[in-house]
């Protein structure tokens, strides 16, 4: 294990870098997209609600691997070239955005009851009330679990290995097949994944205990 780590440390850290970069980008964009679709799911317009709902259900019920491979193999064949890292990150973003949308939607619904009417009665428009009253409270509920979403993203980013996204898992495959030391290669990257994910997980649990 130590041998593999010291011999391939630069390759492994490059992989870790791509993994974290992909996860951070995906977290950022899935938060934006997730918020948009969460709002669409609760607005009065029925068409918007249907679209919002359809998006969330589709992204939640199709495997991440299918979404990612679709962007890597199918979209470039018919529309525009997307490289492996980008395809993987797009896949991660769309997939995660559905889960974030669900969390934000339930956040909105848990606060909105009387607050919306209250805000409207002071003369605010629907969107003003949403922007200044409802969403800030919804985010308060949503922000803490974002750490867990990030952990999921780091783990899920291993699908980048299927599309040559240069992430940690891709490097592990490459190292395993040049050294023929399969188990140790994967143990090393397992430890590297844990170094990123475990502290966040523990911190999130600590936070949940403190808040709840």
């Amino acid at each position: 294990m130590i041998n593999i780590f010291s011999k391939f440390s630069s390759q492994l850290f490059v992989g870790l870098g791509w993994t974290i970069l992909s996860s951070v980008i995906a977290l950022f964009f899935s938060l934006i997209i997730g918020t948009i679709f969460a709002i669409m799911e609760v607005v009065p317009s029925k068409v918007m609600r249907v679209i919002g709902h359809a998006y969330v259900e589709i992204m939640r019920n199709i495997p991440l691997l299918v979404i990612t491979m679709f962007f890597y193999l199918v979209i470039p064949m018919y529309v525009v070239k997307i490289n492996g890292f980008t395809a993987g990150t797009i896949g991660l973003t769309l997939y995660t955005s559905a889960f974030i949308a669900e969390t934000i939607r339930s956040g909105i619904q848990s606060v909105s009851g009387g607050q919306m009417e209250g805000a409207r009665s002071t003369g605010m428009t629907y969107w003003q009330a949403m922007r200044y009253i409802i969403l800030p409270q919804a985010f308060k509920i949503v922000i803490p679990p974002l750490g867990n979403q990030f952990v999921n993203l780091v783990k899920n980013s291993s699908v980048l290995a299927f599309v040559a996204g240069f992430d940690l898992m891709y490097q592990a495959n490459s190292i395993a097949s040049t050294t023929f030391d399969t188990i140790n290669s994967y143990l090393v990257v397992g430890v590297l994944y844990l170094i990123v994910t475990l502290p966040i997980s523990y911190y999130m649990r600590h936070l949940e205990k403190k808040l709840g």
């Binding site: 890597y72 193999l73 199918v74 979209i75 470039p76 064949m77 070239k81 490289n83 492996g84 299927f162 040559a164």
Partner: peptide, 10 residues
């Protein structure tokens, strides 16, 4: 996958 990636100009 490799053949399809070639076809997709990867």
């Amino acid at each position: 996958q490799a053949m399809n990636a070639l076809k997709s100009h990867q």
